[in-house]
């Protein structure tokens, strides 16, 4: 079977289609590698990012004054085991206080709730940690102010803080997620 000169044989067409398919597959292989690599990085960040209230004296401090009470809470966001920068867009926590040790959140010990968005663009770079100071200020006209005064009469209070840090991964994914933190400890009261 002879083909006319200048005309392409059908086997040639099949060969060309086959080569194009192989080239497409090679491009796809890079795409699969990129996808897998990004997925690995996102998983690594999600599995290792952590938020804690460190157990050293300065991390949580209470200041009582005549008209106002301030509880400073330092929240550390640990992004040291990650290859992606993390953008913190909201930190929220609920605080409970009692003159007796607290183990579980109880509405009778409720003091207040805080939502902190900072500048709205708080970046924790990959491989680093960042500490955010998120205070709660309770004024004298607040219904929980007298309760807090009663609790802190002996110069200390047991605090239970539970909250959540909402973050967004920078880069292509833009994945949003959150991590929880928990703190239970006795805190001394400083007069201001």
């Amino acid at each position: 079977m002879m083909s006319k000169p200048g005309k392409m044989k059908r086997s040639d067409i099949i060969e060309i289609i086959g080569i194009c398919l192989i080239i497409t597959a090679l491009i796809s292989t890079y795409g699969i590698y990129y996808t897998s690599n990004e997925y690995a990085k996102v998983t690594e960040t999600q599995m290792n990012i952590n938020a804690v209230v460190p157990y050293y004296p300065q991390s949580v401090s209470m200041f009582m004054a005549d008209n106002t009470s301030t509880i400073n809470v330092n929240i550390a966001v640990l992004n040291n085991v990650s290859r992606i920068d993390v953008e913190i867009y909201l930190i929220e926590y609920t605080i409970y206080a009692s003159d007796e040790p607290i183990h579980l959140p109880d509405y009778n010990d409720y003091i207040g709730i805080v939502a902190f968005s900072g500048s709205g663009n708080e970046i924790v770079p990959a491989g680093e940690n960042q500490i955010y100071n998120v205070p709660i200020v309770i004024d004298s006209d607040n219904e929980y102010y007298p309760k807090l005064q009663d609790i802190t009469l002996d110069g200390s209070a047991y605090l239970l803080i539970q909250g959540r840090v909402h973050y967004k991964l920078t880069g292509a994914s833009g994945l949003q997620d959150s991590i929880i933190f928990y703190y239970i400890n006795e805190v001394g009261v400083n007069a201001r």
Partner: peptide, 15 residues
Amino acid sequence: AFFFSSNFLKFATGF
């Protein structure tokens, strides 16, 4: 496989 992976892992790549 590329299209399936991209679709399954779209939360990680944004694509």
